[in-house]
Computed example of a mutant assay.
Amino acid sequence: MLATGAYERQLPFPGWTVPGVVAAGGAQAMLKSGLVLPGQRVVVAGSGPLLLAVASSLAAAGARVPAVVEASGYLGYARHRVPLHSRSAVTEVHGTDRVQAVTVSRVGRDWRPVPGTGRRIVCDALAVGHGLVPQIELATSLGCATRRTPDATHALVLDSLQETSVPGVWAAGETGGVGGAQLTQAEGELAAIAVASRLRRKLVDGARVQRLRRRRDRMRAFADAMANAHAPRPGWTDWLGDDTDVCRCEEVTARRIREAVADLGAEDVRTVKLLTRAGMGWCQGRMCGTAVACLAASGSDGNVPPSPERRPLAVPVPLAVLGSLAEADD
């Protein structure tokens, strides 16, 4: 039974490596773990319903949120009197040692910035995220089949009882597509019934299963609609300057990736990785995978998700190992 969750999708832009730029979910995790604010004036930006929850949490904890910047279209949302800028995106961060301000630009339906619309908003932190990506590496290493989701990621192919394409392997939650806690609960209950029935060699409880299926399918349909509404559009790559770092771990710029495609003939993510090392750093492409895939998608829709990779091993990393690495750096 796999329930490995998801991680945040990040799209690069000039200045996204400046201290004070944090993931939207990371800002929320900071609050939940110790009521630590990433800053006093925090702009929340990106796309997806998570932004509203993050902005609300930050405001409730005492931060001032000068704006929520949503790249997709949203109808009049406002919490804690926080201005909401829909069809807009943070296209640049200003500051050296710390965030000092951000540039917010209007974007079209394809997320391409509208010339002349950029304006600065003073802040000392930026919480940014563009949705969630199912974490399916463990499943794909077992050979589980995947499907492309409405927001251009990959999720597992599951049957009506949450079983994957590999017999005896079930999954629930974000591995089958991001949809929230209630959907996860319904999927987990369905999978548990299926597993117990298989072990006991008994038929599943028909009426109960049917109710859970209807509930799951209804919530999945809503989740897919939300995913489609907030899916990154191909015009976002116009945010990138040639010197913008796309792969932070290996310090690979947008220029190098574009040169690999235009001058060296790279036609897919794997070839770009081999030519530039993009995605070969410590995060293994979790931060840059989407961006590299989009930049490598020359001649396509420009919004191609990175193909799920099968890795031979999945092992836990003890905190002692991470601690020893920090000591070695010192």
Rank of each mutant, 00 (worst) to 15 (best):
R106C: 06
T96R: 14
S197G: 15
L212G: 04
S141L: 02
S300Q: 13
W282E: 13
G177I: 11
M30C: 04
R220I: 05
C249S: 09
M219C: 04
A297R: 05
G177N: 11
A191S: 11
Y7N: 00
A27K: 09
L295I: 03
I193C: 11
L325E: 10
A266F: 01
P308N: 03
V21L: 12
H80E: 14
H94K: 07
K273Q: 15
R147I: 15
P316Y: 10
V68E: 10
G73V: 12
V21N: 08
V36C: 01
P66Q: 12
L138Q: 11
A231Q: 14
S57E: 14
V128L: 06
P318T: 11
L203V: 11
V317G: 11
Q185A: 15
P167C: 06
A6R: 06
L322P: 07
V169Q: 10
E327Q: 14
G131T: 09
L274Q: 09
D243A: 14
V43Y: 00
A171G: 14
K32C: 04
S105V: 04
M280E: 15
T140N: 06
M30P: 06
P49D: 02
R106F: 05
P318R: 11
V42P: 02
T146P: 07
R311G: 04
S57W: 07
R119A: 09
R215I: 00
A293E: 01
A229G: 09
A207K: 14
G39W: 01
E163F: 11
A152G: 08
R270P: 02
S160C: 14
D330G: 15
I136Q: 06
V99K: 01
A127W: 00
N303K: 07
G76D: 15
